[in-house]
């Protein structure tokens, strides 16, 4: 899959008309979402044949994106030699889920949606391979980003790709390694909107 093609596909998707400030629902820029999944797939092989979970608000870009990377049935058909995987998308907000399912239908993608507060997510161990997320940065509700990270590292057997503000980088790294038992934590990519992804 070409990065440019992925970006243009994502650019056509529906966005929030009334973002909820308390949930920090800012849409993930298409180039960031595309870059994150492109790296996860092409550098680390964490998407093809894998079970991928997508955590949190404002993320339907990534939802649809992670699917289209692997979905032969999608109208794209540009991802040669990539097989279907399953995506599980979790969100607390009914409106997000509605928009996400409309987008999924438009793209003819099957996505497994769950309505749940990530902080109260209870799974039977490390059942997914990869988690992708753009957590709330914790600017409205302190620690929200860390809550997401804690749960993500608990349920992922492979890798977690997460976007954070550059100013919280050291704190995020330290917490992941010390408090949440991450095997390693590294910055994979710095992007212009003051965020970065790591695994």
């Amino acid at each position: 899959m070409k990065l440019k093609q992925l970006e243009s596909l994502l650019g056509g998707l529906e966005q929030f008309s009334n973002p909820k400030v308390e949930l920090e629902q800012y849409p993930t820029g298409t180039h960031i979402a595309a870059r994150m999944l492109y790296t996860a797939e092409n550098s680390f092989g964490d998407v093809t044949d894998k079970l991928v979970a997508d955590f949190g608000c404002g993320m339907w870009y990534v939802r649809c994106c992670s699917c289209s990377l692997g979905c032969r049935k999608s109208f794209l058909q540009i991802a040669e030699n990539v097989s279907i995987e399953q995506v599980i998308a979790i969100d607390i907000d009914s409106q997000s889920l509605e928009i996400a399912s409309v987008n999924a239908e438009d793209l003819e993608l099957d996505i497994n949606f769950i309505q749940c507060d990530i902080r109260n997510l209870e799974w039977r161990g490390q059942t997914v391979d990869t988690v992708v997320m753009n957590p709330p940065f914790g600017t409205r509700k302190k620690g929200a980003d860390m809550d997401f990270l804690c749960v993500a590292l608990k349920v992922a057997s492979g890798a977690v790709y997460s976007l954070h503000k550059t100013s919280t980088r050291d704190h995020v790294k330290k917490a992941a390694l010390r408090d949440f038992n991450a095997g390693s934590a590294e910055v994979l990519c710095e992007v212009s909107e003051d965020g970065f992804a790591w695994s």
Partner: peptide, 13 residues
């Protein structure tokens, strides 16, 4: 809901 999802979910009360 697929049974894939059911197989992961646990009661979270």
């Amino acid at each position: 809901m697929r049974l894939l999802t059911h197989n992961m979910l646990s009661s979270n009360i």
